[in-house]
Amino acid sequence: MTDATTLPAAAMPPRSARRRILMRRLWRHRSFRVGAGIVAVIVLMAVAAPLLSGGQPNAMSLRNRFAPPSADFIFGADNFGRDIFTRVLYGARISLWIGFASAMLAAAGGALVGMASAWFRKLDGIIMRIMDALLAFPAILLAIGINAALGPQVSSVIIALASAYVPRMARIVRAAALVVRELDYVDAARVSGAGAGRIIFRHILPNVMAPLLVSVTFVFAYAILAEAALSFLGIGPPPPHPSWGNIIAEGRDYSVEAWWIMLFPGLAISLAALGMNLLGDGLRDVLDPRLKIEA
């Protein structure tokens, strides 16, 4: 339990002051700072991709096939003579978008399912059985299965990854919501006739935000890795989408002669996942130290 859930609301400093204190503690946390820095740089590079590279991610140039890293092609070029640096930059847009969208979608779904399960006790049994069944599958396998049914598109990758992480999010939210549910002021709100929707959104949701936020960062990291794996297996965003996993998959056949094709997108994935993990570690230490997250 965090202090925020055990202290009565009246004893806490005002919300803005509390937020300031939290921000200061976060900023003092070294892994949060490093993680936030890495993520910020990657996001900026993805946004500024056209400024950083004059070329197009899918522009081919047969003359430059397999050009090794040089001043012109700092990450080298692939079998179609496409500039790897440009592809990795634009790939960041796809990979980050898929990671972000699936983490947010998973959080929204998990929050809804988890809170419904905590609030409507009659539904709890059946919802949690379904979640247990889904949780039996490792996320990557669930994503593969769902994606196989939906077909290879960016949107189905997002839906597949989000669905894979909904049960994990739901469990975390449900646990947090069950604690909040028993608090006096929630009881008071219920007695005074507030409806379920109002109580859930005004009282419970703010209190499950901390674990939810921490989970979102970790799921973001896992989703980047999972998206890359799906792309690599050939069931991710279809080529020529330059998602990081796709670039590696395409470079795989030339991994010995033209190692640069797969090296740089792999580094990009690792760095992005590392940044999100560091960010998540910091958030967890500050917001919810006892939270355990499953991959």
Binding site: A229, S255, G266, A273
Partner: peptide, 12 residues
Amino acid sequence: VGVSVPNFWIAI
């Protein structure tokens, strides 16, 4: 680093 690096990439 272990939980951040894609395993298929390390495999290659």
